[in-house]
Amino acid sequence: MPEDETRRTPPDPLLRVIDNLARFHREHEKYYAQAPLRQAAELQARSRALKSLADRWSEAEAGGRSEAEADGRTPAIGFAGAEDLNAPGLVAESGILFMEGEGEPAELRRLRRDVGTIAEDTGQSGAWLAGAMEEAWEIAGSLAAHPALADLLGERHRIIADDWQSAGLQTLVARLLRRALDLLARVDFAPAALRADLAGERDAPRYLYAASELLDRAADLMAESAMLVHGNERRWRVFRARVRALRSEHG
């Protein structure tokens, strides 16, 4: 290689580091281009469940016992389904079943627990990614000293910018999910408490609608985050091809 070209090309140890980062970060991003889409679908399913309950509780008359039980023809049975609280079709879809003499359905507790887990994981991922992009930004700036990579610096910085934006979306998703859980915590899901609410102000369905809307927005942002990361696939491929070509020139 001519001496002037040697000065223009990064030294091989640096190229090895850049190649390593490009290879493994590209593989890492393949995962994060898919995983948020699965989580978004899960959040949408949970949002539908909350809306179904809110729809039911917005219209149902507070009751409790069936007509047969009410007129004495049939004795009250524990663990019987609550006619006035269960939403049509929701039991089969989500497993959420309100039963007489019981408290909050186990499936509803699990829903809230799962949303909390997603919020925690997403918040941690967003914080980690933001920190990683701080460091990547500085490294990418140092590559400007090597003219052989100059025409790819736009691609590299675009990758960082998109990942940084994805990190911000993940942080916002975590906030939305935590606030949705705060709203759900305002509702007492025991059948007796729900019936008292249905006979009064009907606050429960309003809280459920609001929480479901936050879950919907979180799901949208998770999908947007995945799209940003997925859009980097070709940029990584082009960038790494150039780095490998330069390494081959080093021989």
Rank of each mutant, 00 (worst) to 15 (best):
P2N: 10
P2Y: 11
E3G: 04
E5H: 07
T6H: 06
R8G: 01
T9G: 07
P13W: 14
L14K: 12
D19E: 00
L21Q: 09
L21T: 08
A22Y: 05
A22Q: 11
R23W: 02
H28P: 03
H28T: 12
H28D: 15
K30Q: 02
Y31C: 08
Y31N: 13
Y32H: 13
A35H: 06
P36Q: 12
Q39E: 05
A40M: 07
A41E: 05
A45S: 15
A45I: 06
S47Q: 06
R48F: 12
L53T: 04
A54N: 01
R56A: 03
W57H: 10
W57M: 11
A60K: 03
A62E: 04
G63T: 15
G64W: 04
R65A: 11
S66K: 10
A68L: 15
A70N: 05
D71A: 00
P75C: 13
P75Y: 12
A76D: 13
I77L: 14
A82N: 10
A87T: 07
A92P: 00
E102P: 02
A106K: 13
E107T: 06
L108G: 02
L108S: 00
R110Y: 06
V115C: 04
I118V: 15
T122S: 11
T122M: 08
T122N: 03
G123D: 07
A127E: 14
W128S: 15
W128N: 13
M133Y: 00
M133C: 07
W137C: 13
E138V: 11
E138N: 02
A140C: 15
G141S: 14
S142L: 09
A148S: 07
A148L: 01
A150M: 10
D151W: 13
H157P: 01
I160A: 00
A161P: 06
D162R: 11
W164Q: 13
A167W: 01
G168I: 06
T171Q: 14
T171R: 15
L172I: 04
V173R: 05
L177T: 01
L177V: 09
R178G: 14
R178N: 14
A180I: 03
D182L: 13
L184M: 10
F189K: 02
A190F: 02
A192Q: 12
A192K: 11
L194V: 02
R195W: 01
L198I: 09
Y207W: 12
L208Y: 03
L208M: 13
L208K: 07
A211F: 06
E213V: 10
L214C: 04
A219H: 03
M222H: 01
M222W: 03
A226M: 04
M227E: 15
V229I: 11
E233I: 05
E233F: 06
R234W: 01
W236Y: 09
W236F: 09
V238F: 07
A241P: 01
A241N: 10
V243E: 02
V243P: 03
R244Q: 09
S248P: 01
S248Q: 15
E249S: 06
G251N: 05
G251Y: 07
